[in-house]
């Protein structure tokens, strides 16, 4: 057992420690979601209220509607970026250190992903408590199930990042790939508007996006309303996440250099 726990702990520790060291990055990660809530959320909330269109957002005020999504967006970005940072390990050689050790690669990569998830969730929590200040109606009694949903979602996007990073041959176009992948995932997820009202092609993409189910389930847990049933959300979230995680483990397991 020790042989699986050790690399898990090692990699978890590394991710958490590294993040903690990078203080400007810690602060930077809070700015964007707060801006979304304040500038986008408050603005649109007022606009929709003036237009009498709150019914569209599951009967919620737009700011409330947006809040759970922005928390998950924070976690999503954090975990995806950490996952894809495997590319830097590849580029700057650290990956070799893990590959040349006898440690279980499966345990290493799961440890790494959970380390990323830990950080992302702490970031998410900060945003959640900030959100609570402006939307006091959210139900913090469901915090624990909400955290579980977040961890699962985080693992799936850390995995997606790892899959992309191990597939990428060079760091060329790194930023482009991040934008090409994160923007659609964010916008086609029900964070900003209900998926069921969107055109068919958007709905199709959104339904394959784990973030959609995490957002919907969180809205159910924190605000008591959702587009799909909670069981449906959880089932799909777990299924999609498992697929991502298994693919990431498989990719990493067979990774050699060069």
């Amino acid at each position: 057992m020790g042989s699986l726990l050790d690399p898990f702990i090692a990699m978890w520790y590394r991710q958490v420690k590294r993040f903690w060291r990078a203080k400007p990055r810690v602060i930077g990660t809070f700015i964007q979601p707060i801006f979304w809530l304040l500038f986008f959320g408050l603005g649109f909330s007022a606009a929709f209220r003036a237009g009498g269109r709150t019914g569209v957002f599951l009967g919620l005020d737009y700011l409330s509607y947006l809040m759970p999504g922005v928390v998950l967006m924070t976690i999503f970005m954090g975990s995806f970026m950490s996952g894809i940072s495997v590319i830097w390990d590849k580029e700057f050689g650290y990956l070799k250190v893990v590959l040349v050790s006898p440690a279980s690669r499966k345990a290493s990569i799961i440890g790494r992903s959970l380390g990323d998830a830990t950080i992302a969730i702490i970031q998410g929590l900060v945003i959640l408590f900030f959100g609570y200040l402006i939307v006091p109606t959210i139900n913090l009694l469901n915090l624990i199930p909400f955290l579980i949903v977040s961890i699962i979602m985080s693992l799936s996007f850390a995995s997606l990042g790892i899959i992309i990073a191990t597939k990428m041959q060079t760091i060329e176009g790194f930023q482009l790939i991040i934008n090409i992948i994160t923007m659609p995932l964010l916008f086609l997820s029900g964070i900003f508007y209900p998926v069921s009202l969107a055109p068919l092609w958007i709905r199709v993409i959104a339904l394959a996006n784990p973030l959609t189910y995490a957002v919907d389930a969180s809205r159910f847990l924190l605000l008591g309303v959702s587009e799909f049933s909670f069981i449906f959300d959880i089932t799909l979230l777990i299924s999609l996440s498992s697929i991502f995680l298994i693919l990431a483990i498989y990719q990493f397991d067979k990774a050699t250099i060069g």
Partner: peptide, 19 residues
Amino acid sequence: TIDRNLTGYENMWINGRLY
């Protein structure tokens, strides 16, 4: 192949755990 954001001790410790 050292993690520059970690200390010397931390780099060693992580490696020890991997072994």
